[in-house]
Amino acid sequence: MDILLQLIANGALLGGVFALISIGLTLIFGIVRVVNFAHGEFLMVGLYATWIMASQLGLHPYVAALPLAVVFFFLGALMQRAIIQPLMNADPHIQIFATVGIGTALANGALMLFSADLRSVDLPWARQATDLWGIASVSRGNLVAFFVSFAATGALIAFLNRTHLGRAIRAVAQNRYAAPLMGIDVNRIYAITFGIGTGCVGLAAAVLAPLYPAFPTVGSFFVLTAFVVVVLGGMGSLEGAVIGALIIGLVESLAGYYIAPDLKEVVYFAIFLGILIVRPAGLFGVRGNE
């Protein structure tokens, strides 16, 4: 029993990490309708950026989170304008390869600049264990990531529902052809959404930096899981992404313990395929979006 609670706690916290990484992806996925294969590499760039700020400027990674998110917003918007926008009406094949190309370039650029070594942000505080009411022992950094993922999701949902811009974004998601009739500049919305999605990655990177070292291929470790989470939750659904992330986190934790650690990916890919077959729109997705 004791061990089960610990596994659930671990799984939930891991789910928090996945959620943090996935919300940006699902936003872009749902609204711009582009699968960003470079998402993992954005995370990698963010981890390096946090490491540089922490080691060179002595900035606390959590303090670095906000400026990093802002910088990433502009990078994302820029990338959308320069590379994705011209391809908006192209075949999905083309869009996928454009982002694959960006990802390859970023990963290799990092290899050039930083070599294959691990770069770790030194924040022992984040790695210390905290006792949760005597039922589980978890690290503080993971708790922070967990709460930030919820806060970020909540903030985004509020933004989409309560603000004018957010409603415009939702309008574009619902009907990209009708939105212009209501005076919405669709292309601007795309750039902003891409920026917000990328900004989320920047935030995620800063929060995760004390937990995960940076190296050039770190993005590929996370990106497939993020895709699974996004599809599971339903394309474009932020709530879905969080719940999908929690499910995958729990599956990883429980399957790793009860089945075999080297087969846990098999288990969640199997779930992923099952969901795609039974409910292609995902748990919280809107039918027809697939």
Partner: peptide, 20 residues
């Protein structure tokens, strides 16, 4: 005897088993 994928991002369940 436990194996895990070299691309794992989490080894907590492995550790629980070792602890177990």
């Amino acid at each position: 005897k436990l194996a895990y994928s070299a691309r794992s991002v989490d080894l907590s369940s492995v550790i629980q088993r070792l602890r177990g």
